[in-house]
Amino acid sequence: MTTPLTVTRIAHACQLIEIGDLRILTDPWFTQSAAYHQGEPIAGEVASLGRIDALVVSHEHYDHCDLDALVAGGFDLSTPLFGPGTVTALAEGKGFTSLHTIEAWESATVGDLTVTATPGQHGVHEVTFVIQAGGRAVFFGGDSLRVPELDEIPNRFGKIDLAILPVNGLCIRVANMQQVVMDAEQAAALTAVLNPTVALPHHYAFHSGRLGDQIITRGDRDPRHYTEALARLAPTVATRIVLPGTPVTIP
């Protein structure tokens, strides 16, 4: 019998992945600041999450590592947290007690859950992840650029059931338009290599405010560019664009 697999996007790159009875939260972001806007409703607050069995965090940027919101919301700080050393060092300072530091191609296992850090590249140190339990495998792309090492994932892990990828191609205007996140075409090309059963875009609604979008960042906020590219590059891979709070069940 296939283990049930469901994912619900909370907002941005914050996803609730449910594999059987396991509930895994990724890249938490529950608050906003002057230059960081989700650009979409948040599907619930920290207190409404219910039981979380593991927290997976790709890097320390505020919009992916909103640990203060978790602490303020009464999150259980004994929840196992998986991430690179830059993240676990921050988490230790916030009072988290079950820390699992993993860098690219390193794994940690808690109970039936195995989390492997896979390569990533961003404006700061970042990893991506393959999350495995119950015979299921999920690739979580954080907000990484596409790096060639990610093409090794199918050979290392076999079948990927679900791939969640950033698609907005974020560029930093004040750094000569340096690109720091894969764009829709790059994400679709990576999806073609991963060949998951289902691929979902995320990290596209984010914006920096009216002024910030003019002088700080530029990003593609239309996820249809990803689904259109995917139809060309990997037509057998199913995809959906969903509002926050909408569960997607993976066959």
Rank of each mutant, 00 (worst) to 15 (best):
T227Y: 07
L67P: 14
N168T: 04
D66Y: 04
I52R: 04
R232D: 11
R51M: 12
L16G: 08
R232H: 11
Q121P: 05
H64M: 12
T79I: 06
L145V: 13
S78T: 15
Q178D: 02
H37T: 05
M182G: 04
D183W: 03
D213P: 12
P28D: 00
A104M: 10
P119Y: 01
E40T: 14
F75Y: 11
L190D: 01
A35M: 14
I172W: 04
G50K: 03
G123I: 11
T3L: 09
V147Y: 05
A13N: 12
I131Q: 04
V248Q: 01
A117E: 00
V180K: 02
A35W: 15
S48H: 07
T79M: 04
D63T: 13
H202D: 06
D63C: 14
R136I: 10
F30R: 00
G83Y: 06
G219W: 01
F129A: 06
D76A: 15
A231F: 13
I160M: 04
F30N: 01
Q38D: 05
V198K: 05
G95W: 07
A104K: 09
G120T: 03
K159T: 13
T2F: 07
E152S: 12
T2H: 08
T227S: 12
V198H: 09
Y204H: 15
G123M: 09
M182S: 11
S208V: 04
P148C: 09
P166K: 00
P119G: 03
L162A: 05
A175K: 11
A69V: 13
T197E: 11
V237S: 08
V115L: 09
D213E: 13
A238M: 08
I164E: 03
L170C: 13
H12C: 08
K159L: 10
E152V: 03
P166S: 01
G39F: 07
R51Y: 07
G39D: 02
E106Y: 06
R23N: 03
P4W: 00
L230T: 02
A189G: 09
G93I: 07
L243S: 15
A163Q: 02
F157E: 00
A163S: 13
Q15I: 04
S48A: 15
T239V: 07
T217C: 08
P223A: 01
E92A: 15
I164W: 06
L162W: 05
G141R: 01
V130M: 03
A89V: 14
P235W: 00
D183G: 15
A188W: 11
Q38R: 10
L77G: 12
P201S: 01
G120S: 09
H122L: 01
V198Q: 03
V7Y: 06
H12T: 06
R156P: 12
A163H: 04
L55W: 10
G85M: 06
V87R: 00
Y36H: 10
R156G: 09
A188V: 12
A89E: 14
N155F: 08
I241M: 09
E60K: 12
D53Y: 05
P166R: 00
R221V: 08
R232L: 14
H225Q: 03
I153G: 10
L81S: 06
L233V: 13
C171E: 09
G135Y: 10
T79H: 03
G111Q: 02
F140R: 00
G123V: 11
G142R: 00
Q132H: 02
V130Y: 09
R218A: 13
R156V: 12
L77K: 14
P28Q: 00
I17A: 07
G169Y: 10
L16S: 03
H122I: 04
G50T: 10
C65K: 01
G111Y: 04
